[in-house]
Design a protein around this nucleic acid. Structure first.
Length: 896
RNA sequence: GGGUGGUUAGCUCAGUUGGUCUAGAGCGUCUGGUUUACACCCAGAAGGUCACAGGUUCGACUCCUGUACCACCCACCA
């Protein structure tokens, strides 16, 4: 007999070992079954798992277990990410703190520091592996990958080479975000803005007034820019020069008229430019071919151009520069209430300074990608795969966000001046003739070649994640094979790519999801995944972000799991929340689902007790339910038919990734219907075969959600000779036990009423009481169903709830309150049907006219030739939605 | 400045083609229950103008327009 309460601690680890040993997690590339692949977003190998990971693991495990039970070849590939800057900065901080070394990079040198980081990462990866197991994740450990694996490195190098030879990767002097603290570039997406109140100065600059919050960058400013239409500066022409007194003496300045960078309504309407340290100024300087000068060094200190201020830090120099200008009488105004936004590195937390530096870039605008027989730019491919529905995003609204991001996308700077990561596969050799360059993993023959010291942006390698992990590591070592060969000859890639669904938090849609689309379509010619499922972020009870720095608000999954069980934690993060929306998690919520699991546990105990009472072993009850209809009571039949509907609903929900809905449905079915109604009824007289059948089905349906407890229960109720639940086939809704009422305008209603009547008589149920009925109203005509309620009220029938898809707690029941009055059906007085009909017909005519217009447009050759593809798609979408609407109206009109 | 989401019971949230809703769940509150599956429970109750104002419709939490507040994302002012 089962113990009185479910104890997750006693079961979970044991069951996980059982699963792992059974080979259930392991996918087979040779299988004939349809594949279902999920690439686990690799957690950063920097420390511990947090709730964000727990959400991800729970969701993906549900997808995978469901797919596996549905008979698909399910692969969930786990792994970890080396997380370049994040890891390096964590380790450097650790060394600084533990070993009291100010500059670990200088002290250890490249090789030793990398070795130290690797050691730290190895340890972290071990921790992460065991934590992933704790959540019950059924991933294929035999295929575990790490972004720095040699086979992944091979892919990185191959893609770099391919992009370079296609002219998509170039090296150039460009303005980048420089983190002086970490001494590296960071990408646009890795920047956060912090608001700061700083004084805002206005200075006299020749005849003009210019304003700035950063006077310390103004040493080299020799151009003053204004809008060409600005009446105030009408007398100045583009190219005019003038002498003026400035920080370190007299300079000659030039007037520039430009309509792109200047907002004439802002401030004085003119500004000076600092191309080396400002993105917008750099663009202008590029356009007009203006000189640039570096003012601030890469160490964050002023350069000799600053004269007496050279060597000072920004904080130190700023007041001194202001003081000097003030003494010269050039300071005209100070605004103390100015709010300025300072760019801060997301990882290193240093203040970011734009700098011009030689870096490697990926060109996102060059039409060098072959996609669907066209030559497109990387940007265009990224747009096409979403627009053409090759990839669907859940929830859909993120498509808009995605498109908006692509519109603003600039060339991607991929080089980083750190040591931890994939080294850029480029070699240089300097001789008297100049510098030779070679792109490849290995240097060419001969001496004197040195490798580029930089590493690649971590997203370069994670952008390859869905497929580089499927490359056969044995083949990856063979340098004679091309990238195409590697793809073609790797069985895993052939079987499991494109992956089925990419599940991740919406916060890394740009960082990662977009880059996987970019890199994968380019490198393999395939989309990386068919569906993107974005989950919301976990928040605290007060709606704040969970942060590790504040443990009082932060829930640690590792403390929760021993206390409430992994199953309860999983449910609390899945049920009653919707994709893409943040949700709050707190202990009471988790406890609530622990209670549910306990309820299920005790319901099972009850069923087992009934079996014992009846002298029947559950093991002897065959898997196939075979009790004849004649031996079933009305409640039995009601339960079985609603069980069928439950199977259909849950299957449908899981197929459409509506996990919360399906989970709620199960929760309510088990508690409100199965336990509170059917089990209570069974205390009088129990039908053991029905009880066991129901429980078995429930346990199957719940298994993806709470795998541990269901597996444990399955052991007590499974038929003889059957193995683990994880390997069981998914239940199928047969519908054979139902008698759907045939459709018909009034027939339906009459059938319902007469069925209730006969049941009431047969079982002697008094009016007002709920009665279980086998009347199953087919999901047919909601319009009619609603009208039927009007009719009934008109006919003095107090209340009748007719369910097409009944609320969970009255599944299979029709609650009726009849007062014995004969039913006369009449349409009069309820609604003005004539008016409705007229309205519908008018709407139909309008739609038909519109549709004809759109069709004519699409049939017009000149339009099709001249219009942009976007416009055509839009027209087609309009057509489709109009057709859909028209179809619905036709359907409604049929009811008249 | 551009965009997205939210606003539903005291709290946290579901509610996908407008008709299951005459609006649900969990927690909390109140009343009553040791009926041997479960007190991590059972029976029941109170509690909502579904932010606000218009519109479309026979019918709107659901669609449209506008307003307010909150949150987030992107761009950015020199």
């Amino acid at each position: 007999m089962l113990p009185k309460a479910y104890d997750p601690k006693a079961c979970e680890d044991r069951i996980y070992t059982l699963w792992e040993g059974s080979g259930a997690f392991k996918a087979d590339a040779a299988s004939k079954k349809e594949s279902f692949t999920v690439s686990m977003p690799p957690p950063n190998a920097t420390g511990q798992l947090h709730l964000g990971h727990a959400v991800m693991l729970a969701l993906e495990d549900i997808f995978i277990r469901f797919a596996r039970m549905c008979g698909k070849e399910a692969l969930w590939l786990p792994g970890t990410d080396h997380a370049a800057i994040a890891t390096e900065s964590v380790v450097i901080k650790k060394i600084q703190k533990e070993e009291k070394i100010a500059d670990p990079r200088a002290k250890y040198g490249r090789e030793k520091l990398v070795a130290k980081i690797a050691e730290f990462v190895d340890f972290s990866r071990g921790t992460i592996r065991s934590q992933v197991r704790k959540m019950g994740s059924s991933c294929d450990w035999s295929r575990e990958r790490y972004t720095l694996d040699s086979s992944l490195n091979r892919c990185v190098n191959e893609v770099f080479k391919k992009m370079y030879s296609d002219g998509l990767i170039y090296r150039g002097q460009r303005i980048v975000n420089w983190d002086p603290k970490m001494q590296t570039t960071v990408s646009d997406d890795e920047i956060e803005y912090v608001e700061e109140k700083v004084p805002y100065y206005t200075f006299q600059y020749g005849p003009f007034q210019i304003s700035t919050a950063r006077p310390e960058t103004k040493f080299g400013d020799k151009y003053v820019v204004m809008h060409p239409d600005d009446e105030r500066y009408k007398q100045y022409k583009d190219g005019d020069t003038f002498e003026c007194e400035w920080i370190n003496g007299k300079i000659t300045a030039t007037v520039i008229k430009d309509d792109k960078v200047i907002d004439p309504t802002f401030g004085t309407g003119c500004m000076t430019i600092t191309p080396w340290h400002d993105m917008a100024d750099f663009d202008l300087a590029e356009r007009r071919d203006l000189p640039r000068e570096q003012i601030i060094g890469f160490d964050g200190r002023l350069l000799p151009i600053a004269g007496e201020f050279a060597g000072m830090s920004i904080e130190e120099a700023r007041p001194k520069v202001v003081e000097k200008l003030k003494e010269k009488g050039l300071l005209t105004k100070v605004d103390e209430n100015y709010v300025h936004r300072v760019a801060v590195s997301y990882r290193g937390k240093g203040i970011v300074e734009p700098q011009i530096k030689e870096q490697w870039f990926i060109d996102v605008n060059k039409p060098a990608v072959k996609w669907k027989k066209k030559h497109l730019s990387l940007k265009q491919v990224m747009q096409d795969v979403i627009r053409s529905r090759d990839i669907a995003i859940i929830p859909e609204r993120f498509e808009k966000v995605y498109f908006h991001w692509i519109d603003n996308l600039r060339d991607w700077c991929i080089s980083r001046q750190i040591w931890w990561g994939h080294r850029i596969p480029v070699w240089y050799k300097t001789s008297a003739k100049g510098t030779d360059m070679h792109v490849g993993a290995l240097p060419p023959d001969g001496t004197g070649w040195t490798q580029d010291p930089d590493t690649l942006d971590t997203w370069f390698s994670s952008g390859l994640w869905t497929w580089s992990t499927l490359i056969d590591p044995k083949l990856a070592g063979n340098l004679d094979l091309s990238l195409e060969d590697l793809l073609a000859k790797s069985p895993d890639f052939q079987k499991f790519h494109p992956t089925t669904v990419m599940e991740t938090g919406y916060d890394i849609l740009f960082f990662w999801v977009a880059r996987m689309i970019l890199m994968t379509t380019y490198a393999t010619g395939q989309i990386p995944f068919k569906t993107v499922y974005l989950h919301g972020l976990v928040r605290t009870r007060d709606g704040k972000k969970m942060s590790k720095s504040d443990p009082s608000t932060c829930i640690d999954p590792l403390e929760i799991i021993p206390k409430y069980g992994a199953d309860a934690l999983r449910l609390s993060m899945i049920v009653s929340q919707s994709p893409g929306n943040d949700f709050r998690l707190y202990e009471e919520k988790i406890a609530g689902y622990r209670n549910f699991i306990n309820k299920l546990w005790n319901a099972s105990r009850f069923v087992l007790m009934q079996c014992e009472k009846a002298g029947i072993k559950p093991q002897d009850i065959p898997a196939e339910f075979s009790t004849p209809n004649s031996q079933l009571s009305i409640p039995d039949r009601a339960l079985l038919s609603s069980l069928q509907r439950l199977v259909a609903d849950v299957t449908d929900g899981l197929t459409k990734y509506r996990l919360s809905e399906a989970g709620e449905r199960l929760y309510s079915f088990v508690w409100d219907y199965f336990c509170d109604w059917y089990l209570e009824l069974s205390k009088g007289e129990a039908n053991v075969s029905v009880l066991v059948e129901a429980l078995r089905t429930i346990v199957h349906l719940l298994h993806p959600y709470c795998p541990f407890v269901t597996e444990e229960l399955w052991d007590s109720i499974k038929p003889k000779g059957v193995g683990l639940l994880i390997k069981e086939p998914w239940p199928v809704a047969e519908g054979g036990r139902l008698d759907p009422v045939p459709e018909g305008k009034f027939e339906l209603l009459i059938k319902v009423i007469s069925a209730i009547r006969s049941l009431r008589v047969e079982y002697g149920v008094s009016p007002g009481a709920k009665i279980p009925a086998i009347v199953h109203v087919a999901e047919s005509d909601k319009f009619l169903l609603t009208y039927s309620q009007h009719f009934l009220r008109l006919a003095n029938i107090n209340e009748l709830t007719v369910s097409a898809k009944a609320p969970a707690h009255c599944q299979g029941m029709v609650s009726a309150f009849l007062n014995g009055v004969d039913v006369h059906l009449s349409l009069e007085g309820v609604v003005d049907l004539e008016k409705t009909k007229k309205n519908l017909e008018a709407e139909r005519a309008q739609l038909q006219k519109f549709l004809a217009g759109v069709e004519a447009k699409l049939g017009n050759e000149r339009f099709m030739n001249s219009a942009k593809p976007d416009v055509v798609t839009l027209e087609q979408e309009k057509k489709a939605s109009a057709q859909e609407k028209l179809r619905k109206i036709e359907e409604r009109l049929k009811a008249f």
